[in-house]
Amino acid sequence: MLNKIWLALVAIGLVVAVGKDVNDEVRNTYRNGIPFEVQWEPKTPAPLGNRWEGNIVVSASAFNQFYGIVSQTEEVRQPATITVVHSGNDLVSLPASDASPALWRQISKSAATKEKLSATIAAKNAERKTISIVLEPIRFVKLKAVTQAALDFANTAVQLALGLIGVMALWLGLIKIAEEAGLVYLLTRLLRPITARLFPDVPADHPAIGAIIMNTAANMLGLNNAATPMGLKAMEELNKLSTKAGTATNAMVTFLAINTGGLILIPATAIAVRAASGSTNPGIIIGTTIFGAFCATAAGVVASKLFQRLPNYKKDLLPETVEKREPRHE
């Protein structure tokens, strides 16, 4: 299942990216090669040397009309530098900034020089008040974005994993003490009536149960730093009970269902964002969130119990059928 979903995510991503780029090319979404008439508002009356700084000004309606969009609402005032070229067309460089229109900001990411659009001046009137610029051709916006994302996210993954080392070490150390002192065992005895039903395959006083309880409690309190190490500890203990390496056991999936349900008492992140965006009652979502997370967790647990009986998933747990592999000779 994960194989197919993983493949689908990548394949759909690539196909959609190619589709959008072809569509952009056919419709010329970025108006490649078409002159755009804009106002030139210089900062100095004449160029200094061969450089001339100023603003390119376009009304919102003219911008929208040129690109066939409706999203630009404010007059465009784009800082720009003209480079006067004696033999040939003058060049304009438009660095992307907060002042740039959203569309230009977006396409500047796929420009030849990142975050900077360049253009040539195709025509100008006598006082150079109105100039006609042709922006550099913009192509393969989505394919470039997808490539960048692939590299960026691979990096993010490593950073996330390495970022876990410190908290992991801290909590695994503390849990080990609690385990040796018999505290974890005490905890498991307390909640045995519930855990025995949820995890019938796990012996009632197995350390895995203690870790599962601690993980769930930490999650409910929103202590993410502590929850992940405890969850991974639980997985490690559950893995010790597994008879088949590399395959998820029923208990693992039920535990994961509880985790992805995300039971939480105070959704701190959502409340903080609500407060920051000026809500009069940021905490109003506490009740609704508890209800939503409860639905998710309950549905997940029930689904895990039902699905584990399906023959298709059951057979994966059976020991490998005797299928002797010939040693490879190379």
């Binding site: 893995n239 693992m252 999936v253 349900g261 995300g262 997940g300 689904a303």
Partner: peptide
């Protein structure tokens, strides 16, 4: 824990999300 065959974990997780 180096589990590669996740069995029913993905559909179960997605059902939990859907109901959430």
């Amino acid at each position: 824990v180096q589990v590669k065959n996740t069995r029913h974990a993905v559909p179960v997780g997605l059902i939990a999300d859907l109901f959430g």
